[in-house]
Nucleic acid binder design. Structure first.
Lengths: 252, 252
DNA sequence: CGAGTAGTTGACGATTGTCAAGATGGGTGG
DNA sequence: CCACCCATCTTGACAATCGTCAACTACTCG
């Protein structure tokens, strides 16, 4: 709230209309006039560092957040100090949508690396959305998209083998990076093996072994957190080829 | 579209404002005047029979649907004829929310028993919602609720043992029935063992064995599809007691 | 009443978690 | 700038849960 803080905010200030993420984020499909109005309510680019919270489980819900740069993990802390990783969020992705109903955050969000986060006060967004039909529509779409995404994950956790889960995870990251204009075959994973395993419902050791196996099979090259997809098609094939889980699904 | 059809519609016609589900469904929190307007766009109580589709995977999305009586399963058909059960829906629950984004249904919905389904054309609902703020809010809430629900399921599939999954499933049904004023301890399961297993990511045989074990342990009495919860507290305890999955979650 | 589907039970095995030990590397302080 | 330390990751051995296969029973529906 000091002058210097204001300056740093201004330095980071990039209007929605100039933001490279506009097509992935809330402004999608809005006229430039409407984007201007949306712009007016967005608190932009709060810079956070590894381990900082965007919001915490139990806090009252006021805003949605958009990842502008960096990456965020959302997770449900369990009473005993454990956690259940719910997702990893890349630039352009909206978080906090699950809190609208109860008006309380039901999960925590922590940045995995230095990240810039835009804050969107929800009540103002809601008000604005009733006067901008395309914004309202976009919000319904984004909420619906989140449901679709969770559904995919449900299928992954309920029906797929460890191998398929990790392959799907890596391909998901790859595709999301491509959409953002980044290399889909050469990237760093900002999360730990433990977090990947937790997210995919696997033990750390299983994740580690799978990375080794994928490398041995020539599907990728792995060096700590640096991943190089060598054979994305073969990786896709891991998902489609008949496995235990397919057999299980067949109607008898 | 014949006269007789119109008559059957009229016979089933129960306005939202007189519907016992109003507090669970879209009208929640609306003034009676607003409910009247909502009423105007709802196509009411299409009666369907076991195996009938509410909508099918791939169909263009036009409407949301509310289960009025009976029960519905939603599932994603897989190319090889298998399926992935995504959910079971009881009276007052809204289905089709996942289709808003792509404007195409990404799953199929089939009724499990004779059911009445209300149809709500989405574009009209959307238009109406921008003039009724509390309806808009309720829609955001319902979408958000769906996300929260999926998140719980994610935790179930990713971290819980077979025993915990089935216990959670039965307790979920029980709680939802209670909200609808039905017995939470004595109910019929309209879905098959296969569908339960598929939904929970378990083999039919595992589900069957668990029912037997729960019965042997005095937690419930099972006779085909009829379930009698004998010890709901002990059933809750199955969820909270330390198990494999808890150990796994502990931060090292 | 017969046939077929759904459900149950048993035996077995595979995938994946657990435990344990060792390797690797980044960060910190002298 | 180097050395140490600790967290993270890897690898191996073993075990348990849960899926698979198979046989049998019991409903349900023509």
């Amino acid at each position: 709230m000091t002058a210097s803080k204001v300056i740093s905010f201004e330095a980071l200030r990039v209007a929605c209309k100039n933001c490279s993420l506009a097509t992935l984020c809330l402004p999608m499909g809005l006229t430039s006039d409407d984007v201007e109005r949306l712009d007016g309510i967005v608190k932009r680019a709060r810079p956070l560092h590894r381990g900082d919270y965007v919001f915490r489980n139990g806090e009252r819900f006021h805003s949605l957040y958009v990842v502008k740069t960096g990456s965020v993990k959302t997770y449900a802390p369990s009473p005993e100090g454990g956690e259940h990783v719910l997702g990893f969020h890349l630039p352009g992705e909206l978080i906090g949508l699950d809190a609208i109903e109860k008006e309380v955050h039901t999960c925590s969000a922590k940045v995995l690396e230095t990240s810039a986060i835009c804050e969107v006060p929800f009540s103002r967004l809601e008000t604005l959305s009733s006067t901008i039909p395309s914004l309202q529509h976009q919000l319904y779409r984004l909420l619906s998209k989140e449901i679709g995404h969770d559904t995919e994950l449900l299928l992954l956790l309920g029906k797929k083998s460890a191998e398929e889960r990790l392959a799907a995870f890596l391909l998901s990251i790859s595709k999301r990076l491509r959409k953002r204009g980044l290399s889909p075959t050469d990237f760093y994973l900002s999360m730990s093996r433990y977090e990947i395993g937790n997210y995919l419902g696997l033990a750390v050791e299983t994740v580690s072994r799978l990375f080794t196996r994928f490398q041995d099979d020539g599907l990728l090259k792995v060096d700590r957190k640096h991943i190089e997809l060598r054979d994305p098609e073969a990786m896709e094939a891991v998902l489609t080829r008949a496995t235990m889980s397919d057999r299980q699904q067949r109607v008898r």
